[in-house]
């Protein structure tokens, strides 16, 4: 698949803009849901090896709360919303008003799991509908799945499809964290959008950029 060689800085800028628009909507949704200020970093678009992809999310051993969904339609791919455990605990404790809730101490309360799933639903929904409005492409997400596990185990699942055609992945990475909280820069959440290789063409075409 030669697509990776043909991608220029213009294409990367287009993908950055997608990350920007999607994550900005999701961050706004998160902010109004939690009534907190959420800060968003400038999106990064990188072509990385699978091992480096794991490192972007803190290394394969790192245990995180993750929302995963597949997208289908004009664009297909995988999307992850990854939160450090302490950050997801803080969000959910705030949402369900239960200070004892802890993702690291199963069995987890139904209401906590449900709140996290709903959070994932709302955030990925706002990310993808913004993306769909912007590109006018049809995007159908699956129901988001929630898991608490190692980064390597979670992300490799989203790479299965892609690994058949490439040893590298183009990742659109947007980091968010709570504003005005000391140390919150270190507990960043990440949105990862991993389009399937054949989807880049439709993304670029929809925005008037073609691949050589």
């Amino acid at each position: 698949m030669g697509i990776h060689q043909n991608i220029t800085s213009i294409h990367l800028d287009v993908l950055k803009e997608i990350g920007n628009i999607g994550a900005a909507h999701a961050a706004t949704a998160l902010s109004s849901l939690l009534n907190k200020k959420i800060d968003m970093k400038v999106p990064k678009v990188e072509m990385v090896s699978f091992d480096d992809m794991m490192d972007l999310a803190g290394g394969p051993d790192n245990v995180v709360t993750a929302i995963y969904l597949r997208i289908e339609g004009d664009v297909s791919g995988s999307m992850f919303f990854i939160l450090p455990i302490e950050q997801s605990n803080a969000f959910i404790r705030n949402l369900i008003q239960d200070p004892t809730f802890d993702f690291e101490k199963p069995p987890l309360s139904e209401i906590g799991i449900s709140a996290m799933q709903e959070l994932g639903n709302i955030l990925s929904g706002s990310y993808l509908s913004a993306l769909s409005d912007f590109t006018r492409l049809k995007i159908y997400p699956t129901v988001p799945a929630l898991t608490v596990d190692m980064v390597g185990a979670i992300i490799s699942f989203g790479l299965v499809e892609l690994s058949q055609v490439s040893d590298y992945v183009i990742v659109i990475d947007t980091a968010i964290h709570e504003e005005d909280v000391p140390g919150s820069e270190d507990v960043r959440g990440h949105f990862f959008l991993l389009p399937d290789p054949e989807s880049f063409d439709s993304i670029f075409k929809s925005l008037g950029v073609t691949l050589p």
Binding site: F50, D51, M54, G59, P60, D61, D149, M150, V151, G152, A153, I154, S156, F157, L159, V160, S163, D167
Partner: peptide, 23 residues
């Protein structure tokens, strides 16, 4: 050992791979 990777170890070393999911 990384993802989609392989290696060899001899005593006294050990060999490890992290975060196996469907792999």
């Amino acid at each position: 050992v990384g993802i989609a990777d392989m290696n060899v170890a001899k005593n006294p070393d050990t060999i490890r791979t992290s975060g196996l999911g469907s792999c």
